[in-house]
Simulated scan of single mutants.
Amino acid sequence: MIDPREPIVSPVPVEELRPTQITVGMREVALKRQMIRTQDAKNKTGAFLGKHMVPVVLGPKNRNYVTDHHHLARALLEEGVKDVL
């Protein structure tokens, strides 16, 4: 049986992530996008995302709310990445 305090890691569509902070610095998002493009050029995007999970909590209506890595989540959305852990 899974301990309810243990994280559950599963792929989630980036489009379904909801922010918990009202603003995101677009300069930081631009830097993250550049980093993602660099990783993609080396065919390491999957390995990169495996090490940089986006933590979420289930909120109302079982929606995924981002608790950290807001800039990364926005950059992934803008880069067309479909799913994230």
Rank of each mutant, 00 (worst) to 15 (best):
K51I: 03
G46N: 04
K61T: 02
L76E: 02
N64G: 02
V57S: 04
T23N: 15
R27N: 12
G80S: 11
E6P: 01
K51D: 09
P11S: 08
H52W: 12
R5A: 06
N64D: 12
T67S: 05
N43A: 07
H52P: 00
R18M: 15
V81Q: 13
V81T: 06
K44R: 07
D83R: 11
I36E: 00
Q21F: 03
P60E: 13
R37D: 00
A41G: 05
D40Q: 13
H52N: 13
P4V: 09
V12P: 00
P11G: 02
G59S: 02
V9Q: 02
P4I: 13
V12H: 02
R63K: 15
L49T: 03
R37W: 10
K61S: 13
R33F: 10
N62Q: 10
K44A: 08
G25K: 14
T45I: 14
P19R: 15
G80Q: 09
D83V: 13
A47R: 00
G50V: 07
M53V: 14
A73Y: 07
V14N: 11
I2P: 02
P55D: 04
I22L: 12
A73E: 08
H70V: 13
T67I: 09
T38D: 02
Q34I: 09
G46V: 14
A75C: 09
M1Q: 11
D3E: 01
A47C: 03
P60N: 06
K82G: 10
A47N: 01
V9G: 00
P13W: 05
V56K: 04
I2V: 08
P11C: 05
Y65F: 15
K82V: 12
V56A: 08
P13I: 08
P4Y: 10
Q34M: 09
A41Y: 02
G59L: 07
I36V: 07
M35F: 15
K61F: 14
T67K: 07
T67W: 06
E78F: 05
H71Q: 08
V66N: 02
N64L: 09
V81Y: 14
R27F: 10
A30H: 12
I22P: 10
T38A: 12
E78R: 14
Q39E: 07
G50D: 07
S10H: 03
P13C: 11
N64I: 00
